[in-house]
Design a protein around this nucleic acid. Structure first.
Length: 407
DNA sequence: GTCCCTTTGAAGAAC
DNA sequence: GTTCTTCAAAGGGAC
């Protein structure tokens, strides 16, 4: 396998929307001898939308550390070329980027179902395809090292973790080991080299990762912001059962992440991005659309009332849209407060009754009335409310556990 | 080269 | 306990 990997075309995964998937480490489950799949050999991993490798949707994380030829513009693979940082040419040379906690991977016993899963069913069109078999099996499928992946000369501690990226893209990979004796090197250099351990992906992120390529193909869109809006709508259109698969997958990802990085905290990554955003938000005291100001402006109870069309929104959307007032504020018991004329129930600030179209409605007045750029979305079923009984939220603790905790 | 946009969810900080 | 903020992914666009 190493040899096969060494001789892979370095550019074979270039531009892959699923560049994230570490199949280079995997034997194709559909080949009896476990040799590399033809797909993973000379054929681009991502078949546009409808030809995705059966495993691709199930491996949610980047293979930036797996394929030395990957050149996604945001992947650290670029770093090596641009800055001349040596990148291990073969997996056996890759140092342990994440030294295992006591017990290591060996103690992690995810299901083996992914190895024997059936071929991922791909519909010829549409997006409401069944993920069921793939995802239920894929629930244990992780970006993290799988025990079965360690058998082909893969050292248990020598597998890079896609969750770890060189900090700021300017550092070379280094061991992540809180228990390890520090290497004798200048402190500054050491800090600079410390890799960033990414947060585990949540359910929606996993869903986006899987569906992005499909949306791109269907809608001929490229802007991620627009794609994400569509994906947000589709996410809300998913049934609870469908969403549950992603929640379960995300839950297992978090478990694995915790086991691999016991001392890691999301706080570790605070301050590593969005400097400008934070700086802007420091000036939010003058923002009339801030929830606190909006509640004050419209005489709402600061503790129990909500000013936006959705309580999850951080700002008053209607205010941002130029209407100058909050839309259908409701108190915590769901009763309307100073309701505007004829507010549909679905527009009230109750998550369980809020239609996905509104949830996804852009706050920017210049865009709010634009139709869904993806014609496929027109075929979406109503995202919530009585027209989609049992769709979600009524008892979906992962999604709104916090939001519903106070009501 | 860096940040923004845009989405949802998780986690931490702040109150 | 509640609210707010940050960061996960993605890549075109703006600066």
């Amino acid at each position: 396998m190493d040899d096969g990997m060494k001789h892979q075309d370095p550019g074979m995964y270039k531009g892959s929307a699923y560049s994230g998937y570490p199949f280079l480490m995997l034997s194709d489950p559909y080949l009896p001898n476990g040799s590399m799949s033809p797909l993973s050999n000379k054929v681009p991993v991502v078949q546009p939308s409808h030809g995705v490798h059966p495993l691709t949707p199930l491996i949610p994380y980047s293979n930036e550390h797996f394929s030395h030829g990957s050149h996604s513009p945001h992947l650290p693979a670029d770093i090596n070329q641009k800055q001349g940082v040596h990148r291990p040419s073969q997996t056996s040379d890759i140092p342990g980027f994440y030294p295992l906690p006591p017990g290591g991977v060996g103690q992690i016993t995810p299901s083996m179902g992914w190895q024997s899963q059936s071929v991922y069913p791909l519909p010829s069109c549409g997006f409401r395809q069944p993920y069921s078999s793939a995802l239920s099996a894929g629930a244990s499928f992780s970006r993290f090292t799988h025990p079965l992946m360690l058998g082909s000369g893969m050292h248990t501690t020598g597998i890079p973790h896609p969750a770890i990226v060189p900090h700021s893209g300017k550092q070379e990979m280094e061991h992540y080991d809180r228990n390890m004796k520090p290497q004798p090197e200048p402190k500054r250099e050491k800090e600079a080299k410390k890799p960033t351990i990414k947060k585990p992906l949540n359910a929606f992120m996993l869903y986006m990762k899987e569906m992005r390529a499909k949306v791109i193909a269907e809608c001929t869109l490229k802007e991620s912001a627009a794609i994400n809006q569509i994906l947000g709508r589709r996410w809300h259109a998913l049934s609870r059962e469908e969403q549950a698969k992603y929640y379960e997958l995300a839950r297992k990802e978090r478990q694995l992440h915790m086991q691999l990085y016991p001392g890691w905290s999301a706080r570790d990554n605070y301050g590593k991005k969005k400097r400008r955003t934070r700086e802007k938000q420091q000036d939010s005291s003058s923002d009339p659309a801030s929830p606190k100001k909006c509640r004050a402006r419209f005489g709402l109870n600061q503790q129990t009332d909500w000013c936006g069309p959705c309580r999850r929104k951080k700002k008053c959307i209607r205010y941002l849209q130029g209407e100058g007032r909050c839309a259908s504020p409701v108190s915590s018991d769901g009763s309307a407060i100073d309701s505007p004329p004829s507010p549909p129930d679905a527009l009230r600030c109750i998550p369980s009754a809020f239609p996905s179209e509104q949830l996804a409605a852009p706050a920017d007045p210049a865009h709010r009335d634009q139709p869904d750029p993806c014609p496929v979305s027109a075929h979406l079923p109503p995202a919530s409310g009585p027209s989609r009984p049992g769709a979600r939220r009524s008892s979906a603790p992962p999604a709104y556990s916090r939001a519903s905790s106070g009501t």
